[in-house]
Design a protein around this nucleic acid. Structure first.
Length: 493
RNA sequence: GGGCCGUUAGCUCAGCGGUAGAGCAGCGGACUUUUAAUCCGUUGGCCGCGGGUUCAAUCCCCGCACGGCCCA
């Protein structure tokens, strides 16, 4: 299924260019300027001053528009930072260069050089003195005005999306900036950036289904990691004390506007800190990013103003269930009552489930979407937190929080469980749930317990979903809009 | 996994039981200061795929594929 006629025309042009001795894919010219740099430097310079300039400028990029008058033309060249208008005139170019210009198509990569001037309408423009074809394009680009709107094509052929939509390009520039800012913030606070295994013999550190793979030489099953947690805490035990990792996690679960099977997470561990320290730290980190991007702590996400001014709301899971879900205090301690409430709220709950799990199912169904402004939900049931430290005030709950913004979980953090005996008990409990049919329950990890037995300092750790954070800071409705190549089903012909 | 929606020219979209339309892009022509340039002319379609209903299907029905949104 090829665009036959359009392709044929371009192939004829290629033949004509070749016959005239034109190299279609040279690599011997380097542009000395970018469109953005010229604009920044001469955007305010008047015509008279420009006319005095003897300096030549050269830019390269994709030909995006041609307005031709026969013997002259205005064209737009787009490079990584923007677009610039250029003026082509037959009496300025060499005969060969003008011949090449006439054979160009929108979408070709070209190089031009010349002097700057202002047009009648005062637009800063390069008067082209010489021109090179740098790479021939044989497929037509999306329409110039509407651009590319077909969502499937946008994700499958992201190059077309990036070429035709400056707003998309802007999102990925901002994504890079946000991650840079996070690194800067962590480095400033004396955290060490590390990399831990993506392929693990046991997929631990979170509650999720893993992807499975196989190493041939070792003849061993391996899992793509669902979290780096257990490795990062080994490093804390090893004395690194403050570590962070920004990298991909893989979870073999459904795809939605908030879930991609591979997603980016920043996880960090901070010795001698508690989950309460992490709340303040998170407020500072998010504030640091927001101030750099928005020059303030308030911004709009999908039509709703989000205010990141600290301190953020803090409430316990229990209080959230009482105040927001409208549960009765008796429902929180009685499994039968909790199950009845859960069923009424429309979530499944099995009689065999521990109470804590049932409560969290109600939380996810009823409370989550109502937490629009930044909110730390604290004190999770121990049953759903196999790696968190028990609370000193109530051992059935743990010193943990999840951060919700715009009704979505953005971060998960807790004071780490560093008592190896308790950790073993938790793993044993998880094994029981696995045997009861919960294939997401955590596996036993003897190596990890052994590491804890050497003594891990009291530590707090946090994971922040980078893609979701970037959605928030780019006002994106879908996680696919902040991931360059989101997973799609392979198309079969 | 379920529900709803979409798939028509390279792109953006109309059409809707009687055999395919527009704009942009392309091609030919005019034009040396345009800004989605303009003006004249013009090429281009397995109407996602497979069945069915019908004298006749892009249109109605069923299935499939891919995508979107919502739900689990």
């Amino acid at each position: 299924m090829e665009d036959n006629d359009l392709l044929k025309v371009r192939l004829e042009k290629i033949a004509a260019l070749k016959a005239a001795g034109v190299d279609l894919y040279p690599n011997d010219v380097k542009p000395q300027n970018t469109t953005a740099q010229i604009m920044a430097q001469f955007g305010d310079t008047d015509s008279e001053t420009l006319a005095q300039l003897t300096q030549k400028f050269s830019i390269a990029g994709r030909l995006m528009a041609v307005r031709s008058f026969g013997k002259a033309a205005f064209v737009k060249i787009q490079d990584r930072k923007g677009q610039m208008q250029c003026y082509i005139a037959k009496n300025i170019l060499s005969e060969q260069d003008f011949f090449i210009f006439k054979k160009l198509d929108i979408g070709d990569i070209i190089y031009i050089s010349g002097k700057l001037f202002r047009t009648k309408t005062n637009e800063l423009t390069v008067e082209v003195e010489s021109l090179r074809l740098m790479a021939k394009s044989i497929h037509p680009l999306p329409e110039k005005w509407h651009g590319l709107t077909d969502i499937e094509t946008r994700y499958r052929q992201r190059h077309l999306d990036l070429i035709s939509s400056p707003a998309v390009k802007e999102i990925f520039y901002r994504r890079s900036l946000i991650i840079k800012l996070m690194r800067q913030f962590m480095d400033t606070h004396d955290f060490l950036e590390v990399e831990t295994p993506m392929m693990q013999p046991r997929a631990g550190g979170a509650v999720a289904r893993p992807f499975k793979t196989h190493h041939n030489a070792l003849d061993q099953e391996l899992y793509l990691r669902i979290a780096p947690e257990l490795y990062l805490k080994r490093l804390v035990t090893g004395g690194l004390e403050r570590v962070y990792e920004i990298n991909r996690n893989f979870r073999n679960e459904g795809i939605s506007t908030f879930h991609n099977p591979e997603f980016t997470m920043m996880e960090f561990y901070w010795s001698y800190a508690t989950y309460e320290d992490l709340m303040s730290f998170t407020e500072e980190l998010f504030g640091f990013i927001a101030k750099n991007i928005f020059e303030g702590l308030k911004f709009t996400y999908q039509g709703t103003e989000i205010d990141m001014t600290p301190p953020w709301r803090r409430l316990t899971v229990k209080d959230a269930l009482l105040q927001i879900a409208g549960m009765d205090p008796a429902d929180l301690t009685d499994s039968t009552k909790a199950i009845a409430f859960a069923r009424k709220a429309g979530c499944d709950a099995k009689e065999t489930d521990p109470l804590g799990k049932i409560l969290m199912a109600i939380f996810d169904e009823v409370v989550e979407k109502k937490l629009v402004q930044p909110t730390f939900v604290t004190q999770y049931p121990v049953a759903v937190s196999p790696l968190s430290r028990r609370s000193n005030t109530d051992p059935e709950f743990v010193d943990r929080f999840e951060l919700y913004i715009s009704g979505r979980e953005i971060a998960n953090a807790f004071s780490e469980l560093n008592d190896p005996a308790d950790q073993r008990d938790r793993f044993v409990q998880q094994l029981k749930e696995r045997e009861a049919g919960d294939d997401e329950a955590h596996e036993m990890d003897e190596d990890y317990i052994r590491a804890l037995e050497y003594g891990m300092p009291p530590t707090a750790g946090e994971g922040i979903g980078i893609d979701r954070l970037i959605m928030l800071f780019t006002d994106s409705a879908s996680i696919r809009d902040v991931i360059l190549f989101p997973l799609l089903r392979t198309k079969q012909e």
